[in-house]
Design a protein around this nucleic acid. Structure first.
Lengths: 141, 141
DNA sequence: ACAATGTGTTAGGTTTACCTTACAATAATT
DNA sequence: AATTATTGTAAGGTAAACCTAACACATTGT
C-alpha cells in the first residue's frame, strides 16, 4: 500500500506546516514552505507531488497549496500530537516554548497514542492541582 | 566530519545492543545482533564496519564484538537516555514497561538533554512525594 | 573428516529525504 | 511591454538504512 495513509515523518512535517497556513487562512506557496521548513524548493516540489499522490493536498504549479478533506484530518492529528507534547514539556517539565516546540516536532512522529493520552490526562491533573503540586515542589527542590 | 561522533540514530541502536551484551559479559556476534534488532545479517555487517570506522567498536569476522573506550562512553549516553525516558513513562505516565521501552527506543535518539534532565528531576520529585500526589490524583480523576 | 549448520560479506536493489545546478514558467515592477 | 524577480521542476547526486540472493568461511556433530 502506497496510496493514502502511511504517511512518513518527512511528509508529516510538510503537511503540518500547510495545515498551519490553512488555519490562518494564509495562502501558501511552495517557495514559502521551503523557507519555513528550511529545505530547498526542489525538495518541496517532490514532497508536494507525493502529498498529491496520496490525495492529502490539492496543488498545481504557481497556485496556493490546499488541503483535501483527508489531508485536513491527517494534518489535524499531527498538529494535535505536536501540541500535546509541547504543552506537556512546557507545563510539566518547565521547558521553554522554543525547545518544547523543537522537541515536539520530532517526537510527534514516533510517540504512541497511549503516551499522548496519558500526557493529556497528566497535564489536566496538574492544572487542577497546580497550587498543591507547586507547594510540594518548593519543599522538595 | 565523518570520523568519530555524529553517530546516526541507526548506529545508536546497534551500539546500545552491543553495550547491553557488554554489561552482561555476554560475547555478542553479528548474527545474534541481527536477531535481536530484527534486521538482516547483511545490515549488521554494514553497520559494524561503520562503527569500526568511527572507532566505537573492535571487531573482525567471526569474533565477538567489543566496545572501545569511546564506544563505551557513547553507548552509555544512549543507554542512559533510554532509561530516563522509560522510567519517566512508566512512573509518571503509568505506561507498561513494554510500551515505555518501545517509545524510549525511538525517542532517545532525538530528545534534548534538557528535557531528559527535567525528566530526572521530575521523577525524583514524584517519588519523594508519591503519597501526596497519588492522593491528589484519586481526588481528581 | 566431512556434512550440516551457522556466520559473514558482497553485490545489487529499494526507499526516503535531502541537495545543487540549470532551466522554465509565471508574476511583479518599472 | 520588457526586464527583473520569484517560483517551480527536472536531472543527477549523496547518504542512511534497509533488503535478498549468492557465496565464502567457520564451527559443530556424528
Amino acid at each position: 500500500m502506497n496510496t493514502a495513509k502511511n504517511i512518513t515523518s518527512g511528509l508529516e512535517d510538510y503537511l503540518e506546516e500547510i495545515y498551519i497556513a490553512h488555519t490562518n487562512n494564509k495562502p501558501l506557496k511552495g517557495a514559502e514552505l521551503a523557507r519555513k521548513l528550511n529545505v530547498s524548493r526542489a525538495s518541496v516540489s517532490e514532497a508536494l507531488s507525493r502529498l498529491v499522490e496520496k490525495k492529502l493536498i490539492n496543488y498545481s504549479s504557481y497556485e496556493a497549496i490546499s488541503l483535501t478533506k483527508s489531508g485536513i484530518s491527517e494534518a489535524k492529528k499531527v498538529y494535535q500530537k505536536h501540541h500535546i507534547l509541547k504543552d506537556f514539556f512546557e507545563k510539566i517539565l518547565d521547558i521553554t516554548p522554543e525547545e518544547a516546540g523543537e522537541n515536539a516536532c520530532k517526537i510527534e512522529h514516533i510517540v504512541s497514542q497511549n503516551i499522548l493520552d496519558k500526557m493529556i490526562e497528566y497535564t489536566k491533573f496538574y492544572q487542577k492541582n497546580k497550587e498543591q503540586i507547586d507547594r510540594l515542589k518548593k519543599d522538595t527542590l
